[in-house]
Write a protein that binds this DNA or RNA. Structure first.
Lengths: 350, 350
DNA sequence: ATGAAAGCGCTAACAC
DNA sequence: GTGTTAGCGCTTTCAT
């Protein structure tokens, strides 16, 4: 079937050197005289030799694999970040193993444990909860780890995220400027760090002008699942709703529509994450845009440094989100805007 | 760092058997006396032993990895299928390596070639084009391959797809029933097999009643990229537009909105793939729903059979798509529907 | 700077 | 049915 597979020995033979030298040329871990180096490279070309990852993996105890664990492969936010990491890591000769933690800390831990077996060159984890179970497994194996999106509790680790507080504050400010004084924030789960920070941002701005703020937990039901009764009730008392995740944005929009409330006439809506459909929705949706491409880039950049042996203290890389103003936000019925609107508003610097 | 790693020898020692027996218990490739079997399992538990995939991989020449190559990780259609495969394969003890072919046959080939190195237990490819370059590499390595979504030219292979012709026909019938006689179909590229089949389905129904049908190629520009002028012009002459992919659906909806054409008053729209946002768009979008979960399930089921050694001839598994009727389709201005509408219409059986 | 040789931990032959 | 043994192809000492 396979027409005889080319091994390193064949290359060594053809180049007239030892396998050790071939290995040194290929891995670059030891200097080789330029002439031999070229001889080897020529032989590699001619034979179309490719390193057997299995043998390399077994002997060196490390694979050219990057392991990524995300809460869901279907959520476009995670998918975009994975796409960027796949593209970049692939260019550097790594393959990407993906695992979904299905929004469950227990699964997250199990998936990490089995991925550690593969001794990947690096781990990228977007945690479900503040725990990050499995962190010890990764660290015990001495594998570099970059955490993104949500910051776990415990000792500092390399983190890539957005300025959640700033994003929340920008949304709050926008709504205050429009004259809203009665807000609701919604998320599947409120007890997550990034959600808490977004809420804190909104809350600070609201407090400055004495606006009220209710917090609504929608649970992890299907995207368009029915909201809890209490949530529906809370929603009815406010003039503006802030959806703190992309799934919540659709959920709330559907709920408001079902309840017959016109947006933005009756209630304003701000969404999280910016997607093409928000432009074709009627009204188009004002939303916070997270720079997913840049985040993926930062994750890979930092992971590369760690794989390369960087041992500096853990760093936090914070990206700036941007509020995209569209039609779903307007002054409350009878209210008046305090300041003029611009089409975009940068949220913060980092 | 690592507190001494548990090897198969340790397990053998503790259970008082040979490593071969341990291996046989673990892989199940050879029968082992029940008592010993239990002894080994106990030792495995107690020592928390896990097979080193590197060594197993090197020796057996096959890894417990599934390789999946898709045109894009960000397109939700592909993401959903990957999510299902990840979940199912993970349950059976495989890890999933994903690769994006970036809609390019050249990249597709390159990615497949480097993945073949990992000697995965199986390949899943959703091809970019009719070529499926890289197919030889997979087959030469004797690795089972399941192709999905688009059928490649050349010798038959295991395929999982939808009944594209039936889907197109159902859409066509729906629009004919509403009284439309001037249609347009749109896709990024028309020269793809599944797109051609969808068009053929529409065309057949259109021909039966003498309706006109124009084909528009929108190119692979950004989702909401501007349409070519010729496309805009073609669009202006029809009373109904059928978007044949999910990206096209958004593109066309945006273009129609930009052109100030009301949907469905001025023009009807049918989309492809069914997403939550289609429910909150105004008007909500009539669309063809592909059973992505079931397709992922079929892919994994067939791949498992092949991994298990099944050598029956290549099979085609065709799933039935479903037309979800919503607000974006209506009789053309001044026209009258020929038959009453129902909320759903099954497209075909398979 | 280079080569010789020793395994990495496991599975597949083979002998019993 | 079980144990013994020989590598899988590479990377890594360790001499030279």
């Amino acid at each position: 079937m396979a027409p005889r597979v080319v091994t390193m020995k064949d290359v060594a033979l053809r180049a007239g050197v030892s396998t050790a030298t071939v290995s040194n040329v290929l891995t670059g871990r030891k200097a080789v005289r330029p002439e031999l180096r070229e001889l080897v490279q020529k032989a590699v070309e001619e034979l179309d030799y490719r390193t057997d990852p299995a043998a390399s993996f077994l002997r060196s105890g490390r694979s050219r694999i990057i392991a990524a664990v995300v809460p869901s492969l279907e959520n476009p936010f995670f998918a975009s970040i994975l796409a960027t990491i796949e593209r970049l890591s692939q260019q550097d000769g790594y393959e990407l193993i993906v695992a979904s933690s299905e929004e469950s800390p227990a699964i997250e831990r199990a998936r990490i444990r089995s991925l550690v077996q593969w001794k990947p060159a690096g781990f990228v984890v977007l945690p479900n909860s503040a725990d990050l179970p499995g962190r010890e497994d990764i660290e015990a194996a001495g594998i570099p780890l970059i955490v993104a999106d949500r910051e776990p509790e415990g000792p500092a680790c390399d983190l890539v995220a957005i300025d959640n507080f700033g994003a929340g504050a920008a949304v709050g400010r926008h709504l205050m400027d429009l004259g809203h004084r009665s807000l609701a924030v919604c998320a599947p789960f409120l007890a997550v760090r990034n959600i808490q920070e977004r809420i804190a941002g909104v809350a600070q701005v609201a407090a400055e002008v004495g606006a009220s703020l209710v917090q609504i937990e929608t649970g992890s039901g299907g995207t368009l699942g029915v909201l809890p009764d209490s949530a529906e009730a809370s929603l009815s008392g406010v003039t503006a709703v802030i959806a703190l995740t992309n799934t919540t944005t659709l959920q709330i929009l559907a709920a408001l529509t079902r309840a017959g409330r016109s947006v933005p006439g009756n209630v304003s809506l701000v969404g999280f994450d910016d997607y093409p459909w928000m432009l074709v929705a009627r009204p188009s949706v004002t939303a916070v845009r997270q720079p997913v491409g840049a985040m993926g880039g930062s994750i890979w950049a930092r992971l590369q440094e760690r794989i390369g042996g960087a041992s500096d203290p853990p760093s936090r890389r914070t990206h700036t989100a941007e509020l995209i103003l569209r039609e779903s936000t307007a002054p409350p019925s009878g209210g008046v805007p305090v300041r003029p609107r611009s089409r975009r508003a940068a949220i913060s610097e980092s």
